[in-house]
């Protein structure tokens, strides 16, 4: 059993609009048999945080193209993307590049 983990989730660049305009969320993921990875986090966010229009945030099992993801301030493309195993106190940032200029 993996212990519950606490995360800081941030949404920016307009992505926060899908979360009632709230930019920062302190969340705790419940303990589960396997370690949490990004793929599962996206499902969890969809079920627990996302307020509207999920298609603007997720596509298939990943984020919608055009939304940047940073894990502890580094590009998730360097961290294994969906396979990255979350650690307690990780900071995950989602920035939409799709509007505003």
């Amino acid at each position: 059993m993996a212990a519950p983990i606490a995360l800081r989730l941030q949404f920016g660049g307009g992505a926060e609009l899908l979360f009632d305009g709230v930019k920062e969320h302190q969340v705790t993921l419940p303990s589960q048999s396997e370690p949490w990875d990004m793929k599962q986090l996206l499902v969890w966010i969809q079920r627990n945080l996302l307020k509207e229009r999920p298609e603007l945030f997720v596509q298939g099992d990943s984020v919608r193209p055009g939304i940047l993801v940073l894990i502890n301030d580094a590009d998730w493309e360097l961290m294994g993307e969906l396979e990255y195993q979350l650690q307690d106190q990780d900071n995950v940032v989602f920035i939409s590049t799709l509007h505003g200029g």
Binding site: G12, G13, G14, L17, H99, G100
Partner: peptide
């Protein structure tokens, strides 16, 4: 940390 505004028109 540049200060920018991001909201859909």
């Amino acid at each position: 940390k540049l200060d920018y505004f991001s909201t859909e028109c």
